[in-house]
Amino acid sequence: MNILVLIKPTPDITKVRFDVEKGVVDRGSASLEINPFDLYAIEVAKRIKRVFGGFITSLSMAPPHAEPALRDAIARGVDRAILLSDRRFAGADTWATSYTLASAIRKLGSFNIILCGEKSVDGDTAHVGPEVAEFLGIPHVSFVTRIIDVSVDKVIVESDFGEAYYEVELKLPALIALSRPVIFRDEFIEPSMPKVSDVLRAKKAKIDVWSADQLADVADVSKFGLNGSPTRVVRAYYALEKGRETRVVKGEEGVNMILSVLRETGVIS
């Protein structure tokens, strides 16, 4: 099986600080790591490889300082990591990002299955997976909570459509966007820390960095980055906490206060 994993290097959302005035992320406040949802994609890729054999390629688009995140991906089981990195990719919205990723996938050749996380912790869109699938002309399923079965030409998954979970069969090649937690066949998947020996091996591994020019034969370079993006952020600001005036109480008084809140909100009479 030729397996591709889409990995987005994202800032650690528990550590990142925000520039409250400008409404942007203080880029120096947190280094880039693998988007937590994408860790599940790597785990599923490894399990598919265990069953069928094969090769796991990861593809990312990020600034050069994302390299440690890709070494982490290699330590976790990715065989080859590709980083699309060029100023001309910067400022891309989901459309331009997906177009660029799909172009790189075409350049790499054909894959049986493409895996990614359902969304990223910074963009929050959940759109890139489906858009990549559309550009490649392959089917996809998002919000996948279980891989029921994989065979050489199809995959059966369980997906959250919103109202219910549906069992869906896809012909391969296909793209699967994974939720968390996720079940592979009957196994509950939880990403674990890589072994020290794997971390050391990954330190020496080669990361392929591709510039925009390297995609010129398969894509229209004017569709990359901010230039190629059909949307523009016109304003951004920090989402301030709703002006709640927190009342802090202790022990017995707390119980009485909760009871009166229950009464005031009409929850109890």
Binding site: T125, A126, H127, E131, E134, F135, S159
Partner: peptide
């Protein structure tokens, strides 16, 4: 919804227009 967030991006990619999520 999960359903809408799965279909709409494909439509945007196919038409060649921008999409804004959630």
């Amino acid at each position: 919804t999960p359903w809408g967030r799965s279909i709409a991006p494909r439509v945007a990619a196919s038409i060649g227009t921008g999409i804004t999520a959630d």
